[in-house]
Design a protein around this nucleic acid. Structure first.
Lengths: 325, 325
DNA sequence: GTGAAAGCGCTAACAC
DNA sequence: GTGTTAGCGCTTTCAC
């Protein structure tokens, strides 16, 4: 930067100004500086800038997994807005364990990000303490809570399970089952579904649970297990993701069962393929784009220090009724 | 850090050493320093460290899209290794346009990453120049070229298309068609497939092309289009992704066509669901985990300055024959 | 094994 | 509108 200044016949500070606040530099000077930068191929050092200004324009984003489309698409919407505002994303995958998240938080904090995005609302005490000390805006996504660290953008998984049960009962399904992945929030939905369904109908809800993440193959296996345990015809199955739902659909079809007459299926997530399967999937839609955007805007609002911003955004969900239930 | 030193009765430098090279500090001193850190909840400032040492331990990763499982899973494998070695990932999505990539490269370079991961082997002249000036290790993934910027880990898309055509001919399919997304590399595979198939059989290959990214819905539409154009029974369809293949499968089944007897389908990618559809998908497998790991190791090797490391790694691919073709 | 000094490349505060 | 000065919080080098 000093070198650029020399070439342009100005001091180093003026170059700094030309880059950050061009309107505070005279047009002619600016021109000369731009020229020098062009000629030399100079790339400013944002690390030094961050140290001097204690603003990194870096956002740490911690998600359980990038290969899960559900988190990936939120991240996509989130980072698009952030990128447009000049922020960049440092990414880490935390899996589902709290201590891995804690380690990731500590490491990221040492980079002095301007804000942090966390998935879920459960965090270790150590994580909370570090985040508190760091004093940066934090947004927790994919869930809601009365006690957010800072802001929170998500929806109630309990409520989603309940509403799905209400739907199942309202649609007249006299029996129900669940296929659930090994994910805290999925389990919460399953329990809420079963609770509500059992209370309303007095009929026990059967469960096929998997410790792994949801795949089409496991969805098939889930339905197979349920059928082996004599799941009655006319049952509805509440799946913890559309992957499972599609798997159940494939398995049902392979066995010559009609969906939704013999077996009805409810997915979760309303993924891209859900509308195009045969029959099309009835599912719970979460607007992941809105979720990501709202999270980004919440952080941006915090940067602008708007104090009146609501801290918890419940973006809700919606049952999308198609043909599978 | 000076504060920690005060509390531990040593100088600031000793604290620095205790953190980076603990064995160069006496056990008792170390103990007192660790204590002070624990008490205060001190988090080192990696920004200052990066500035002083000009080592950021940050890797910039540029992929077309995180919501595409194919890139996401490579990223996952890549970042897992990098994380274990103490590196963190700055992520950007570049889409498919070269100038967006160039902007992202410039921005990331200002953060002084220790290395950069790029998707594909085509980059703008400006990108190449900046990367060259930066003098950091660069790994290009998902393709191979004779003229890598630095290292390159991928496979030949041309070869993949050709081998798929050989497979189709060898399996006795007398007609062929393609369903292709608007992606440079997918188009390359399509062309190689068509070329080879036409040369071997003398029969023209029909094409359904989409500008958008591959989805199940578009796969259905692709087959529908092909069928409307009187695609003969007994044709094989080479899809640019498993999503398309699954869509074609759904559409064929919905129309009462038998797969592979009436229509045979070849996917691309061997995604998680490919083995579990009915019939299971014949597809081209790319080992995305190996790809990501190889990319990470190539960079790590560059850091260690091993000069004998091969610059281009062709990880190949494999036709996985299941039931759909 | 430990410390003092210098400096990484910027921004902030203040002069002019 | 532009320059001067003083750091930001570390690592590096060299001395002891």
């Amino acid at each position: 930067m000093a070198e650029i200044g020399r070439l342009a016949g100005v001091s180093q500070v003026t170059v700094s100004r030309a880059l950050s606040t061009p309107d505070k530099v005279s047009p002619e000077t600016l021109e000369r500086i731009r020229n020098a930068i062009e000629r030399t191929g100079y790339v400013p050092n944002a690390v030094a800038g961050a140290l001097a200004s204690s603003k990194s324009r870096l956002i740490a984003a911690l998600v359980p997994s990038v290969t899960n489309i559900v988190y990936a698409s939120v991240l996509h919407a989130f980072s698009e807005i952030m990128w447009d505002r000049g922020y960049q994303i440092m990414l880490s995958e935390t899996g589902l364990e709290l201590d891995r998240e804690e380690k990731a938080i500590a490491t990221h904090l040492s980079r002095r990000p301007d804000a942090m995005l966390l998935t879920g609302v459960r965090h270790s005490a150590g994580s909370r303490r570090m985040l508190h000390n760091a004093g940066i805006p934090v947004v927790e996504i994919w869930d809601v809570t009365d006690t957010p660290i800072d802001c929170c953008v998500g929806f109630s998984h309990k409520e989603a399970g309940r509403v799905a049960a209400d739907f199942a009962v309202g649609a007249g399904y006299a029996h129900a089952a669940t296929i659930t992945a090994g994910d805290e929030r999925a389990i919460c939905r399953r329990d809420a579904f079963a609770h509500r369904y059992e209370r309303l109908t007095g009929t026990k809800v059967q469960a096929a649970d998997f410790a792994a993440h949801a795949t089409l193959g496991l969805g098939r296996e889930g339905l197979a297990q349920l059928l082996d345990r004599n799941l009655p015809r006319g049952s509805v199955i509440f799946c913890s993701s559309d992957q499972f739902a599609q798997g159940a659909l494939v398995e049902a079809t392979a066995r010559g069962l009609c969906v939704p007459q013999d077996i009805a299926i409810i997915g979760f997530g309303d993924q891209e393929f859900a509308a195009s399967t045969v029959p099309a999937l009835t599912t719970v839609r979460i607007d992941r784009q809105i979720l990501g955007q709202t999270a980004a805007n919440a952080l941006l609002a915090r940067f602008a220090a708007s104090p009146e911003t609501a801290m918890v955004h419940d973006i809700g969900f919606e049952i999308v009724r198609r043909q599978s239930a």
